[in-house]
Amino acid sequence: MSTRRAFLWGMAAATLAVGMAAAPLSFAQPRPAVAERLGLKGYDPVAYFTLGVATLGVADHELVWDGVRYRFANAWHRDLFRADPDKYAPQFGGQCAMNMANGNLRESDPTIWTISDGRLYVFASAAGSERFRQDSGTNATKASGNWQNLKRSPGP
């Protein structure tokens, strides 16, 4: 092999080796998926309607809706939710409904809840739930108005 050919062959091999070594660095690495917020702290939103009790869901029966990951006690509940999420999803993104009526974001306790006018409301405390129920129509209307302004807030 001539000196010139050997030199060019060596340069090509070196360029290829450097390119292959750098290749993984030049491609965008997959970013880990951002986990959606777990709605209702893992409680099944459909169970409030069908069972009348706060029931923990299981990871085997999850569904992401509107950027929130919900868990269900069984596949039937998941499928009911999928068919009509507006019916079963908690109002105000699962934030405390009474605090929302007062213009505040506050995390709720999904074991403190009520269904009013066919909608699921969750609360931070039993006292808040009781105050909400005393005038649920007015409180729901106030909370809905406040939710329009607060839903984009970072939250508690």
Rank of each mutant, 00 (worst) to 15 (best):
P30C: 07
R31F: 13
V34I: 14
A35M: 08
E36N: 14
G42R: 01
Y43G: 05
Y48C: 10
F49A: 03
L51Q: 10
G52K: 04
V53L: 14
T55S: 04
L56Q: 09
G57S: 07
G57C: 09
G57H: 00
V58D: 08
A59H: 09
A59Q: 04
L63E: 04
L63T: 06
L63Q: 02
V64T: 12
W65G: 03
D66C: 11
R69E: 04
F72K: 01
A75C: 10
A75D: 15
A75W: 06
W76I: 11
L80W: 03
R82L: 09
D84L: 04
D86N: 14
D86K: 11
K87D: 01
Q91A: 15
A97V: 10
M98H: 06
N102D: 15
G103M: 08
G103Y: 00
R106N: 07
E107P: 12
E107R: 14
S108R: 01
D109G: 10
T111G: 10
T111K: 14
T111C: 01
T111F: 00
T111H: 03
T111V: 09
I112T: 11
G118C: 05
G118R: 06
V122P: 00
V122Y: 02
F123I: 12
F123W: 02
A126T: 09
F132Y: 05
R133G: 08
R133P: 01
R133L: 15
D135K: 12
S136R: 11
G137Y: 07
